[in-house]
């Protein structure tokens, strides 16, 4: 359980307010080579922009103070232009534009080179309203909490299952639209282990707000370990009540939308539940993954996350309890 511990430790360590701020999903806290490049370009741009803004405001203040109308003012001198000023007026912005054109083209080429055509490391699919990640070459399929290895250049393929979504983890660099009918790609070289927040940032419907992303970046061995475990089928030791839950799950239509590898449930509409209990949050970041929340969700999904695709099934309380026990044991 090495990875779980290291991430948990990271999350629960005491932190000062400033450190909490540093955990914000901000483009100014890059944790990947690509994000780094963008952050420094952003810094250059901000400096230039602030400079221009200062000049404009400075001039404006000077003019406002100096040329305020005073009683008895005659008509001021009626000049209409000045070739030197006009030359500067066009020249200086043009110069700035040329500099930033160069920087833009340079950074673009670094951040997002074309798809190399090799097998992607991760395939990410946006669904309403959750993220699916599969790891080609392995059988691992996970939802919303996506683990990635640190220190190597990864190729991400980004798809959508229904409408347009957008993959955005600010600390890892560029965002990329997930568009139905086409495959986009991203390159990511994560430099620091940690947990990085992100969110869908193309409006995709009712629950666009709760389509958050958690990327857990781990050192390569831990990551390998994790993938290996996620690739296995669920084979938990079940308590009696959990066994009843499993039976209930297979009797009900759950399996037509959800998949639990190793059982008869093979649906691909909703999130894969094979290792459901190992996720820290549920419903794409909406709430902590614990039995109470799960019970609430199963009782009335449309109350917990209105607009989500999970229909409300009217089940007796007992059945929901055993279902919760079953799902909670799917580590």
């Amino acid at each position: 359980m090495g990875d779980q511990n290291s991430v948990d430790e990271y999350l629960s360590a005491p932190r000062s307010y400033m450190e909490t701020l540093s955990m914000l999903p901000s483009l100014l806290r890059p944790a990947a080579a690509q994000a780094d490049r963008i952050a420094s370009l952003t810094a250059y741009f901000t400096i230039a922009a602030l400079l221009v803004l200062t000049i404009v405001i400075g001039l404006l203040i000077y003019i406002v103070v100096r040329f305020r109308a005073r009683p008895g003012d005659a008509e001021p001198e009626q000049f209409t232009g000045n070739k030197v000023v006009e030359g500067f007026m066009i020249g200086v912005p043009t110069l700035l534009v040329i500099v930033f054109m160069y920087l833009t083209l340079d950074t673009m080429a670094d951040v997002l080179p074309p798809d190399s055509g090799t097998q992607p490391d991760v395939v990410i699919t946006g669904h309403r309203y959750w993220w699916e990640a599969s790891y080609p070459g392995t059988k691992a399929i996970v939802a919303n909490e996506i683990h990635l290895p640190v220190g190597r250049r990864l190729l991400l393929h980004i798809n959508a299952a229904d409408v347009i979504h957008d993959w955005w983890v600010p600390a890892l660099g560029a965002k990329m639209d997930a568009i139905p009918g086409r495959t986009n790609h991203l390159w990511v070289t994560i430099t620091k282990p940690g947990v990085y927040e992100g969110a869908c940032s193309e409006f995709c419907g009712a629950q666009h707000a709760w389509m958050r992303i958690k990327v857990v970046a781990q050192p390569e061995p831990e990551f390998r370990d994790w993938v290996a475990r996620k690739a296995q089928v669920a084979n938990p030791v079940l308590s009696a009540s959990a066994q009843a839950g499993a039976a209930f799950f297979s009797r009900q239509p759950c399996g037509s939308c959800h998949r639990i590898r190793g059982t008869a449930a093979t649906g691909a509409v909703g999130p894969d539940l094979t290792h459901f209990a190992s996720r820290r949050t549920m419903l794409a970041g909406l709430m902590e993954n614990n039995p109470d929340n799960l019970r609430q969700w199963l009782t009335d999904p449309q109350h917990v996350k209105p607009g989500a695709l999970m229909p409300r099934f009217i089940y007796p309380k007992d059945s929901i309890n055993v279902l919760v026990d079953y799902l909670s044991s799917l580590k």
């Binding site: 483009l27 963008i38 221009v52 404006l60 920087l103 833009t104 950074t107 951040v111 965002k175």
Partner: peptide
């Protein structure tokens, strides 16, 4: 002043890599 701020922040969307971070 306001329009200069709006214009300058607009340029950040022409700078593609910054746009990749900040659009939407």
């Amino acid at each position: 002043v306001e329009f200069t701020i709006g214009g300058l922040s607009g340029i950040s969307f022409a700078i593609v890599p910054i746009d990749w971070q900040l659009t939407d």
